[in-house]
């Protein structure tokens, strides 16, 4: 855990003292618009009237306790999870329900999973080039050139010929980020990208993500890493029991949470 944890009622905390957020990157144009979505798993009400707008270049961090619906919300954005009602639009286009139009839209939305999900039977390089070749129609040479540049950027270039099982968790997750970036997505979704990693590897993955955020990538990040939220988020969304309880800038949220639910959650983080 980072030392800059929420300071709760500490009056001396200045909401503007730490890293300022790269608001310059945000153009204010809405890219992901989630409106009044509901999601049921049988009788269980997983998402309750959730709305969320992510503007171009913005980094939105979703936090909350387990079972609060934050991962479900993240997964509805590229329809790996269907919704019961409501609408989701990406860059003005409503999410198609299935088939080729859905596949085409998914290509515009990068996704990074908790368990990496690299293609186990393909090499690192093939993992990164598959999408560009099969979906974007790039030539193998072109795709490999871009892939190697991306792998270089996340520090895995020299492992390109290996298989995923031969890499550490942190390395696999960085490859997964490169794989998503290779599609040149409009927005990147991170579904608890560091939850399956040990502390040393968490940093190497977060560094890549902070780098992306600084470059102006639009990101939706579900995480328990409060340090990342403080460093990179433009906005924090706090969820509990399937609802968005609070939405605020990171400093405001961590230093002066408005809701009791958020105060309670943050106080528990401090103790641990």
């Amino acid at each position: 855990m980072q030392p800059n944890e929420p300071s709760g009622t500490d009056a001396s905390a200045n909401p503007f003292e730490t890293t300022s957020n790269p608001i310059i990157a945000s153009t204010g144009e809405p890219l992901v618009v989630v409106e009044n979505i509901e999601k049921y798993y049988g009788d269980f009400h997983a998402l309750k009237n959730v709305s969320l707008t992510v503007n171009k270049g913005e980094v939105v961090v979703i936090i909350g306790p387990s079972g609060s619906g934050k991962s479900t919300l993240c997964r509805t954005i590229n329809r790996l999870e269907t919704i019961t009602s409501g609408t989701i639009r990406i860059d003005g286009t409503e999410l198609p329900s299935e088939g080729k139009p859905l596949a085409q839209l998914r290509a515009e939305v990068g996704m990074v999973f908790q368990s990496f999900n690299l293609f186990a039977h393909k090499t690192i390089l093939e993992n990164v080039t598959l999408g560009p070749i099969k979906v974007r129609g790039l030539s193998k040479a072109e795709a490999e050139k871009t892939a190697l540049a991306l792998l270089d950027r996340v520090g895995i270039k020299h492992q390109a010929a290996k298989y995923p099982a031969q890499l550490s968790g942190g390395q696999q997750q960085r490859v997964a980020i490169a794989r998503a970036l290779a599609m040149k997505p409009k927005v990147m979704l991170f579904d608890e990208p560091t939850s399956a990693l040990d502390p040393e590897m968490i940093t190497e993955v977060l560094d890549v993500m902070v780098g992306l955020a600084k470059e102006g990538m639009t990101m939706v990040v579900v995480t328990h890493e409060m340090g990342f939220a403080r460093r990179a988020a433009d906005r924090v969304l706090f969820m509990a029991d399937g609802e968005v309880v609070e939405e605020n800038g990171p400093e405001e949220f961590f230093t002066a949470p408005k809701s009791d639910r958020a105060k309670d959650f943050l106080s528990k983080l401090l103790v641990n």
């Binding site: 590229n78 790996l80 088939g99 080729k100 596949a103 085409q104 839209l105 998914r106 290509a107 515009e108 939305v109 990068g110 996704m111 999973f113 368990s115 999900n117 690299l118 293609f119 186990a120 598959l130 999408g131 099969k134 979906v135 997964a176 794989r179 998503a180 599609m183």
Partner: peptide, 14 residues
């Protein structure tokens, strides 16, 4: 693992 198919769908494979 179901994540393999999810990752494939996520990069836009039909």
């Amino acid at each position: 693992p179901v994540g393999q198919a999810e990752a494939a769908r996520a990069i836009g494979l039909p």
